Simulated assay, not measured.
Amino acid sequence: MKYVDEFREPEKAEVLRREIEKLCLQLNKHIKIMEVCGGHTHSIFKYGIEEILPDSLELIHGPGCPVCVMPKGRLDDAIAISQNPNVILATFGDTMRVPGSHTSLLQARATGADIRMVYSPLDSLQIAKDKPDKEIVFFALGFETTAPSTSLTILQAAAEKIPNFSMFCNHVLVIPALQALLDNPDLQLDGFVGPGHVSIVIGTEPYEFISQKYHKPIVVSGFEPLDILQSIWMLLKQLVENRCEVENQYNRLVEKAGNQVALTAMNQVFTVRENFDWRGLGEIPDSGLKIREKYAQFDAELKFTLPNLKVADHKACQCGEILKGVLKPWECKVFGTACTPETPIGTCMVSSEGACAAYYKYGRFSNIMTQKLTDKQTVTLSP
Rank of each mutant, 00 (worst) to 15 (best):
T264C: 05
M234N: 09
V240P: 05
L236S: 08
V240Y: 03
Q230C: 11
F223A: 12
L226F: 05
A262Q: 09
G258W: 04
W233E: 15
M266P: 02
E247C: 08
V246S: 07
T264L: 07
K256V: 12
E224R: 02
A257H: 10
E224T: 03
D227E: 02
L253T: 12
L235G: 03
L226C: 07
R243T: 04
L253H: 05
V246G: 06
V261M: 13
N242C: 09
G222H: 02
R243M: 12
R243E: 15
A262V: 14
L236Y: 00
L229E: 06
C244L: 01
E255G: 11
W233R: 14
L235W: 00
E255M: 11
V246I: 10
F223S: 09
A265D: 14
K256S: 15
L236H: 02
Q249C: 05
A262I: 13
Y250P: 06
I232W: 00
Q249Y: 01
Q249N: 08
Q249K: 02
R252V: 09
Q238T: 05
L253K: 03
E224I: 00
Q230R: 09
C244H: 13
R243F: 06
V240W: 04
M234P: 03
N242G: 10
L226K: 03
Q230N: 14
E255Y: 00
A262E: 09
L229I: 11
Q230E: 14
K237W: 04
W233H: 15
D227H: 06
C244K: 02
G258C: 08
S231R: 00
W233S: 15
R252I: 08
G258M: 06
Q249W: 02
A265H: 04
Q230W: 05
S231Q: 00
F223R: 05
Q249T: 13
L236D: 12
K237F: 03
K237Y: 08
W233G: 12
C244S: 12
A262T: 09
E245A: 10
D227T: 02
A265R: 00
P225R: 00
E224L: 08
L253E: 14
K237M: 10
V246R: 07
E245I: 09
L263A: 13
Q230P: 00
K237H: 07
F223I: 11
K237T: 13
E224G: 07
R252D: 14
L239R: 10
I228W: 05
L235F: 01
N251C: 14
A265F: 07
E255I: 04
V254F: 06
Y250G: 08
W233P: 06
A265K: 00
Q260F: 04
G258N: 07
R243K: 14
S231F: 01
M234Q: 12
E245H: 04
L253R: 01
I232V: 13
M266W: 02
L235E: 11
L263I: 15
L263M: 15
M266K: 03
G222Q: 01
K256G: 13
N242W: 03
S231V: 11
P225Y: 01
E247K: 07
K237R: 08
Y250V: 08
V240I: 01
N251L: 10
N242Y: 08
A262C: 15
E245Q: 10
D227S: 03
C244W: 07
V254M: 07
W233Y: 14
Q260V: 12
A265L: 12
E241Y: 02
V254Q: 11
